[in-house]
Amino acid sequence: MSGLALNGLSYRYGAKKALRDVSFSVAPGTFCALLGPNGAGKSTLFALLTRLLVSAEGRIEIAGHDLARHPTRALGQMGVVFQQPTLDLDLTVRQNLRYFAGLQGLGGRETDARIAEVLGRLDMAERAGERARDLNGGHRRRVEIARALLHRPTVMLLDEPTVGLDAASRAAITAHVHALCRDEGLTVLWATHLTDEVKATDQLVILHQGQVLRDGRAGDIQGGRSLTELFLDLTGETA
């Protein structure tokens, strides 16, 4: 089974349980929105998925590779966009991407062709020579998404990638990633606390206090209600 599969994942910080028995899977070519309020455990889940943390309980499979047993193979199949900015602001876009290519073991002439290709896909081709510092927030994010595609991963993880962006950039980036998923068959896990980023046809996993409350097609889960309403009901938060 390719795509992404989590089975019985738990994690605790000391006595506090951050994740309890989290299980869900994302089929190849699916856009899965991981929706949860702040503190739901999304960041812990991302840390486990990217192996920044390791849990003794549960199992993670990325594109068919067990993350605990074959970490480098699993990580090699994964593109990640972190919540924190990760571009070197004093380097150009191209230098940033070359650095990442090197980390992935890519070198030589092929790298520059790939850089042009991924930047083109995110409409950033003409920005390759600019310093990251001179780009606005939305464009920096696009470069980070382009970078995450450089090694042709089959699974893409994005941890609240639109935080701090204006409405237009947010819509553009959400649309870009949906398109990647549809056109390239990429498996996407998109963490967010913003309900308007989820489409009715997306898979939706609602995480609250470290537990999965709902897992299914967003349209089915909503059942005619607005997602915001449902989300606030489920998580017991008031707007």
Partner: peptide, 17 residues
């Protein structure tokens, strides 16, 4: 530091030991 936290994550999630 927070400023560098992101680039450390980027480094540590590379597919190498």
């Amino acid at each position: 530091y927070d400023r560098e936290m992101g680039s450390m994550k980027l480094l540590l999630t590379s597919p190498l030991p």
